[in-house]
Design a protein around this nucleic acid. Sequence first.
DNA 1: CTCCCAAATGTAAACGTTCGCATCAGCGGT
DNA 2: ACCGCTGATGCGAACGTTTACATTTGGGAG
Lengths: 337, 337
Amino acid sequence: MVTIREVAAAAGVSIATVSRALADPDKVAAGTRDRVLSAIDTLGYTPNRAASGLRAGRTNTIGLLVPDLTNPYFSGVARGVTAQATDEGVSVFVTESREDPAAEVEILRGLVRQTDGVVLCSPRAVHDDRGVIGPRPLVLINNELPGAQSISVDDRHGIREALRHLYALGHRRIGYVGGPSGSWSDRRRRAALAAHAPELAGVQIVDLGEHEATVQGGDSAAGEVIAAEVTAVIAFNDIVAVGLIRRLHRMGVRVPHELSVVGFDNTFLADLVTPALTTVHGDLETLGRRATDLLLGVLPGRPVRAAVPHLLPARLVVRDSTAPLRARLPAGYGSGS
Amino acid sequence: MVTIREVAAAAGVSIATVSRALADPDKVAAGTRDRVLSAIDTLGYTPNRAASGLRAGRTNTIGLLVPDLTNPYFSGVARGVTAQATDEGVSVFVTESREDPAAEVEILRGLVRQTDGVVLCSPRAVHDDRGVIGPRPLVLINNELPGAQSISVDDRHGIREALRHLYALGHRRIGYVGGPSGSWSDRRRRAALAAHAPELAGVQIVDLGEHEATVQGGDSAAGEVIAAEVTAVIAFNDIVAVGLIRRLHRMGVRVPHELSVVGFDNTFLADLVTPALTTVHGDLETLGRRATDLLLGVLPGRPVRAAVPHLLPARLVVRDSTAPLRARLPAGYGSGS
DNA sequence: CTCCCAAATGTAAACGTTCGCATCAGCGGT
DNA sequence: ACCGCTGATGCGAACGTTTACATTTGGGAG
C-alpha cells in the first residue's frame, strides 16, 4: 500500500504539501499541485482513511440502522442513504435490528462509536436510543426526538388524498387497518384520519386494530374488517394490504368489488399483486438521500448545506384495488367488473 | 471520548496492559484483568477502531457490493452478510452498483482501499474486477474467478428438481426464459438444463431467449413463450416469472391451466402473487453468511475456520403456478380448476 | 543461597495522516 | 537599500492504538 510519504518523495515535496494538495488545493502553488497530483496518479495513491480519521477525529463514515433490510420499504431507504453518502465521499455501515428493540439499542451503541453520525430509520426503541446516542449527530426517519433531526413522508397528505379518493367513489364507512403498536407512523396516520375525515360530509372512520406490519398482520385483520361492515379500508402499508386481500379472497370476499383497499408506500409489490394496489406513494430513495443530507449537514467540518425539507411529498397512486361503492350482494359474491 | 490512557490510569496499570487485557486476556494476571475490566466498565470505554486498525494494519471492516439493494434476492444476501459480520465483530460497508458494470468497477476500487476484503455478489464486470481487486481477499457469490473464493446455491439441483416436477405433471416440451446475457447464473442454469433433460425420456428444452431480470423482462418474453408452443416454462427468477404471468394473463392465457411456470429464488414475492409461484428455493441469508465466513477465513490474523461449503442446497417449492398437462383448448381459455 | 527462567508488566516506537507553527523567499512601499 | 508582509512550503507533534523488546518479580532447581 503506497503512502503519502512515497508520493511526497516522488513529487519532491514534503508530506504536508501532499496532504494540502488534496485537502486544500489552492493552498499550494499550481505547479507543485500538478506535480503532486501526477505523482499520486502514477503511484496509485489513496489516502488511508483510518489514519486520516484518527488524526482528524472524524471517520467519514455514517451508520444506517433499519428494522428489516429485506422489507422493500427499508431497502428503498437504504438505497437512498448509500447513494447519497457515496456521492459525498462518505461510507455507510448498514445494520439491521430485525425489529428487535433490544438489538436496536445494542447495535446503535456499537454503531455510534465508529461513525460520525447515524441515520436511524423507523426506530422501535427511540427513548432508550437517546441515551445511547448521547450528543452524537442523529437523524431519524419516521420518528421524532428532541434534539435530533427528523424526516418523513407527508403521510398526512397521503391520508387526505386516500380519503378523498374513497369518498369520490362513494365510500362513507371507511376502516383503518393499523400497524404495529408503538409505530410512530401509525399514530401519525391515525391522527391524520381523525383530522381529515370531518372535511368530508358523512364519512366515518372505523378503527380496525393494530397489526404486525407483515402479511400475517394483514391476514389477521380480515375478521375484524368483515365484522366492521366497512366498504373500504386504508391499510398501514402495502404488505398488510396484500395479506388482507389474500385472506379476504380466500374467504370469498372480492376486492375491489365488495371492498376497496388502499395500501401505503407504493412498494414494487403494489404493482405485482392481483388486484394491483391503490396506494400512497412516497419517494423512498429521496427520503434516504435527504436524511443523509441532514446528517452530513450537522457534521462538523462539512460544508453547510441548503435547508433540507423535513417532509417529503406523498401522492395517491390509483390502481385496481379500489372501486366505486356498489350495493352489497347478499351471498358475499362480487358481480365482476 | 474516553481513551485507553484514562482506563490505564483508573486501573493503575500501563496502557499496554489494558490493550492486552482486551486482546489477550490470559496474558495478564487475573487480578489485574479484573481491575482493568471494571475500569473499562465504569468509564464506558470502547477502543477506537481507526486507531487500532491503523496500528494493526487491519480495518475490521469488509465491503459488500450488490447490483441492486432493492431486489429481494440481494437484500436477502445483504442480510446474511451483515448478520454474520456483526456476529464476528466486523462492520460492513454496503454498496450498490445499480447493475452498471462501470460503476461496479469504480465502487469496487474505492471499497478495496478501505476494507480488509470484499464480498462481491453477482458481479457484472468480473474480468475487470480482478485487476481492481489485486491481491485483496475477495469472495464471489454467483460467479467464479481464478484466485477468488466462490459460493452459490446449487441451481443445478434446483433445475433438476424443477424438470422432474414438470415431467411428473406430464410436461414434455419445456421452455427456459433466460436471464440477462452475461449472467453466470443464467449460463449455469442453461448448462444444468442441457445436462439433466436427457435423463427424462421425451423431454425437450426450448430456449426462449435472454431477458432482463425484471418484470419487464418477463413481459417481453410472453410473445416468445406463446410462439414456442411449450406447455411449461422455467423462468430465470421469480421476478421474470411474475412479469411473464402477468402479461400472459392479460393476453388471456391462464397459468397454470394452460401453461405451467416455475420461478427461481423463492423470494417472498412468490407467495404473494396470484397464482403463487412454484419456485426453486435457496437460503439467501445462509448464502450471505457463508460468503462472509469464507472471506473472514482468508483474512490474516483471524482464527482459521472449519471448511465452508461452496455450494448450498436448493429445493423446489411447489405452489400454484404449475399444474398437470391438459389438452389445450382451442380458444385460449383455461378450463378452471 | 544462588542462579535462571517464566510470568507479568512497562516503555516506547510505529502505523499514516492532519495541522499549527516556523521558515523562507520574493516583492512592494518607503 | 531596508523592512515587513504575504504566500508557499517544511517540520514535527499529535491522534489512540498494538506490539517488540526491556525490565521486574517471584519461585523452583541445584
